[in-house]
Amino acid sequence: MAQHQVNYASAAGLPIALTSVDKLVNWGRSNSLWPLTYGLACCAIEMMASGASRYDFDRMGTIFRASPRQADVMILAGTLSKKHAEFARRLYDQMTEPKWVISMGSCANTGGMFNTYATVQGVDRIIPVDIYLPGCAPRPETLQYALMMLQKKIRKESADMKKNTKQDLTTQTGKKRARLI
């Protein structure tokens, strides 16, 4: 292994690293994703478990916040009922940009086993979703993996949020329609 002498004195006493603004900003964003504690149903228990002792979310820089104003990620953990849908959208609107959404569990993805009058058939009807997480309920490992995938996604994005194309609220037929964000 080649060894190089680094002359700190000539570099104003500081080690120098060169990077682009995008990478620097995304490095910061992706490594301190603060999710909103948005436990809705059963998946919330697994979300708590992933924050607790064995799975320990804190080591990934993920600290749950109770206020949407301080959160970057909304983890929709559980069944979203029609009565609650309005509040979910309101909390999403209250979050500051940049923001991402993880839909955790079958119920949040598609309505899951609750194919009834009272459940929203997939949260992507009201909120644009970045990561869909399958399972009923997904294990904490799955949530950790989803968060790592989201970090990966963020690292590829542009620091200027306007340039990123968020997944649109598309219709069932898949045709792209107006952006609702």
Binding site: K82, A85, E86, T116, Y117, A118, V120
Partner: peptide, 14 residues
């Protein structure tokens, strides 16, 4: 599966 009103409830509301 709910009636017409139920199926559009969250869209109409939000």
């Amino acid at each position: 599966f709910g009636d017409e009103f139920a199926s559009w409830y969250e869209v109409d509301k939000i």
